[in-house]
Design a protein around this nucleic acid. Structure first.
Lengths: 123, 123
DNA sequence: CTGGAAGTACGACGGCTGTCAAACTTCGAT
DNA sequence: ATCGAAGTTTGACAGCCGTCGTACTTCCAG
């Protein structure tokens, strides 16, 4: 049961084939950065609908794809829910310190939300 | 002679007022990232014409402005030459690890130029 | 004081990208 | 079997950003 690839999700790229350009293009968008930060804070994988995003469904899909192709997240299905996981270790090996630096800066800049949402709410 | 501001250059922003968004928008462009990396490698400040950039003069000016407004570089005049310096410490204090991570990744990705240009050549 | 070197300012243009609505697909529950 | 929940796909549109050429400014050298 090693190769339990789900045909519903395109194959994930090898992180070593990803360019810095691609990564920065992924992280420059506020919505995508929000996704990454929420994932970083979460204690569990999060389904697409579990994020606090102020964009339409189709736009969200687009952003998840960009993140996946940039090697930042891994996606897999559970029922009808598409789950998202941060590829922390692999990505960190390819781009040392980058993810942490961005998430740190993002947290420092993000207004301390009075609402504790964004936790590992898997519905 | 503390405030020897040169009217020819707009005031430099306080790094604490700069947003992560602004920084990433600055670093997402390959030309600007090249400038930053060359500056990081240089042992001395570099005048605008001293960089290896494959864009027109006016485009280069544009990129230098973006970097200055993002708090990444400081500019000052020496004769008719506009010099550029990395604001390493200030920037590093505001965005810990970010600059190093990007420069590191950029170097790893950049084909090992057989030509040793880009050094602190101040003409 | 005149010529040139070093950059800047100003439009203009083209392409990319984030956004959405609408139609479609797939799975699970009833 | 059917209906709804969860996302995706497609196409269209608007705005932004990098690029350039041209004209302009400022300083140094002779």
């Amino acid at each position: 049961m090693a190769g339990m690839e789900d045909d519903r999700i395109p194959p994930h790229p090898d992180v070593r084939t990803i360019t810095l350009q691609q990564v920065l293009e992924a992280l420059v968008d506020p919505v995508r950065r929000s996704i990454v930060t929420q994932l970083h804070d979460a204690t569990t994988d999060v389904r697409c609908g579990g994020f606090d995003l102020r964009v339409s469904n189709s736009t969200a899909t687009h952003h998840f794809r960009v993140l996946r192709e940039a090697g930042l997240i891994r996606q897999y299905y559970v029922g009808t829910s598409r789950m998202n996981a941060l590829r922390r270790e692999e990505f960190g090996a390819a781009f040392p310190g980058l993810l942490d630096a961005v998430v740190t800066a993002e947290r420092a800049a993000t207004p301390p939300a009075h609402d504790a949402a964004g936790r590992g709410r898997a519905v």
